[in-house]
Design a protein around this nucleic acid. Structure first.
Lengths: 299, 299
DNA sequence: CTTTGGAAG
DNA sequence: CTTCGAAAG
């Protein structure tokens, strides 16, 4: 009796894939992989994508450059590039960034008192109307976790959100961040340091007490989506795609086993969904422990 | 009028070579190089070498192993191997050392309070009669700069001598070390952290105020030779060979320009000179900023 | 396991 | 410039 209702088919496909994962691992067939999707360069209404944004946690800008990160960016040629964890002070910036990635308008933000930690970059082909750092709250802007760039038709918020290593601070941050974002017509991207739901990490059961999937954290993500409100562009386009991760710890051969997490996002105001052409994960670009993600918008 | 007296010929050859060095550099012909000598495996009286000792400042044992240092040692197959600057605590020793370098009797010495600094090893094919550490003076043995191994026909003192970074301490050490060595029939080897004479470093004029060729240091070396007394085995065999260095700083392309120093030695009691077959510098072995040196003895 | 800055050579 | 240990992820 082939072909059931669509809803049933989807949920049964998800169950089967989940079952397969264990079977495959037991049979030594290798890990369940996410297959990067080909470009989808038109919006639902058929308008062509004319803006491409890339976000990448580079885990050390200088080593990322040595690992050909810039070459990948040149090939991909985004209009806007958002970098997290640059770990590089101004006086140590490699010349390669100045050179020809075609992104002349560059903005950086990093804590001055902690060289080699954190640090963000926003690079743009066109000059933003306005750029600022932080969420306008002294107590939350010590670590330079946000760059805001205003463009004609949207506001881009690039973020590198603190994980819960620092105890209860993450919840405090989440609330302030939600408040800051409220009401803006925006694209929020970056390393949000949280997997939203069980489908967004390899081992949800085992990570309920670990930073990145603690109840407060992933519930906080849900509240962010609801309160601002925002849509998770990747999940919007691929509601049941499993094994799609954007970071694999270097430890314990996690990359080769696809033991990963989806912590990097493009979140969109709902008013931008009609312009959404694609939201991609580039699992094959390995210049960092995180991979790049790209967003195509028809605006 | 060819062929003058031998002495004259030697000194005129040295002058010419020194002049050539500048000419060559000015002409862009590349640096003046020392050419490693082929094995000389008999003593002056024709006795065959039956003992081979190797000394090497490895500048980090673990990285040295990754750079194939052990492979070189296996090929060279010394009877005794003396290592300096192992920078490796006992619990982090790589398995490769235990395995088959054919040197089962191993002794190590390193300051317990400073992980990753200094550290020596002595590995031997045959079991020494006795092994001890230090020069028997509490104040000088904190840093574990000496391993002494007694064999049938000589005492081997392997040393990693402190440089003059620590102000006047080096002179204090020199005196205590001379006193310790007095009267022993010995082979003293290792990184003595001093170039003896101008011929023993690339830039003697420019280094009179730098650790490694300060007047107190190289005069101290002369006193060591005279007081113990000892002979510098390499210089004994090659009294006028220039450009023979055993360490090239990683900085400023020093290796490719042969901007080096001879800081590593085999010094012998004069009673052992009749047994001296060869004292070699292996400039081509580059698993460290220092290269290995080997001694062949007919005993 | 990998990145960073810092000490040391 | 390279080694190492430390802190952080």
């Amino acid at each position: 009796m082939p072909k059931r209702g669509k809803k049933g088919a989807v949920s049964s496909r998800r169950s089967k894939t989940a079952a397969k994962k264990n079977d495959k691992e037991a049979a030594g067939e290798g890990p369940a992989l996410y297959k990067d999707t080909p470009d989808q360069k038109t919006s639902p209404s058929g308008k062509p994508a004319i803006l491409k944004i890339c976000s990448w946690n580079v885990d050390g800008l200088r080593t990322w450059i040595k690992k050909k990160g810039i070459d990948w960016v040149k090939e991909e040629a985004p209009d806007i590039l958002c970098l997290q964890e640059t770990k590089c002070s101004e006086n140590k910036l490699p010349a390669e960034l100045q050179e020809p990635p075609g992104l002349p308008h560059q903005y950086r933000s990093a804590p001055l008192d902690k060289e080699g930690y954190s640090g963000m970059g926003l690079l743009s082909r066109q000059c933003p109307l306005k750029v600022s750092c932080g969420i306008r709250e002294e107590e939350h802007d010590q670590e330079c976790w946000v760059i805001v760039a205003k463009f004609d038709s949207f506001v881009l918020v690039a973020a590198y959100v603190p994980n819960s290593g620092r105890g209860l601070y993450r919840q405090c941050w989440d609330e302030a961040f939600r408040k800051f974002l409220k009401g803006l017509p925006l694209v929020l991207c970056g390393d949000l340091n949280v997997a939203h739901e069980e489908i967004d990490l390899h081992n949800p059961k085992g990570n309920k007490k670990n930073a990145g999937f603690m109840p407060q954290e992933h519930q906080g993500f849900g509240e962010l989506l609801q309160a601002v409100p925002l849509a998770d562009s990747f999940r919007h386009l691929c509601p049941s795609t499993a094994y799609a991760y954007t970071i694999w710890t270097y430890m314990m051969n996690a990359p080769s086993k696809n033991v990963g997490w989806r912590l990097n996002y493009f979140l969109l105001s709902h008013s931008l969904l009609p312009a959404l052409c694609d939201s991609q994960i580039h699992s094959k670009a390995l210049s960092s422990d995180h991979c790049p993600i790209t967003l195509y918008l028809a605006l």
